[in-house]
Amino acid sequence: MLDNTEACSIWLATHILPHEGHIRAWLRRYGDIEADDIIHEAYVVMAQADHAAVANPRAYFASVCRNLVMQHYRRARVVPVTSLALMQADSVADATPSVERVVHARQEMRFLEKTIARLPARCRDIFILRRARGLSQKECAAQLNISENVVEKQLARALVFLSNAYSDSDREMTVDEERRPRLAHSRKRQP
């Protein structure tokens, strides 16, 4: 599974990651489960899937999580009645995305930019040099006159920061009707 990470990571990055905030918001309603654990297990299940056959990745992600929550309850000795009732009544998470809750690629790009803008200055500079400008870790270190170990640690730090941001990305990743950018198509650029 982990040998084929390139194509798999791209698929997860493109089709799953943007929906994570929404799925986590749904998982948070179940007070007695650890959302992180469910999400991590879901990534393992989804990495093994036949990606070409997944027509609606968001619904697929939601149903994988729902099954894992069910498994969790089956294993648990005591299951709160409220959680079971919620589980049976709940169909929100795997509903087809409505027009109001579509993640736009542009919206995700803005989310990334905003998140990176919040990184501490040095961490941000290193991350931008490496990921946006394509310098190797060695080149980043030479450019900033710091050791390669510092570059590696700061990149890891940026990744953790992004990871937390994706976990809480429900609000930023979705565009409701009133806030949807309306004039993006009419942007004029100076030649």
Binding site: M1, T5, A13, Y43, A47, F127, L162
Partner: peptide, 15 residues
């Protein structure tokens, strides 16, 4: 751990 690793790599790709 596998899930966290897959997820970190996905975030790396997204960035």
């Amino acid at each position: 751990h596998k899930g966290a690793f897959l997820r970190a790599k996905a975030i790396w790709h997204a960035s």
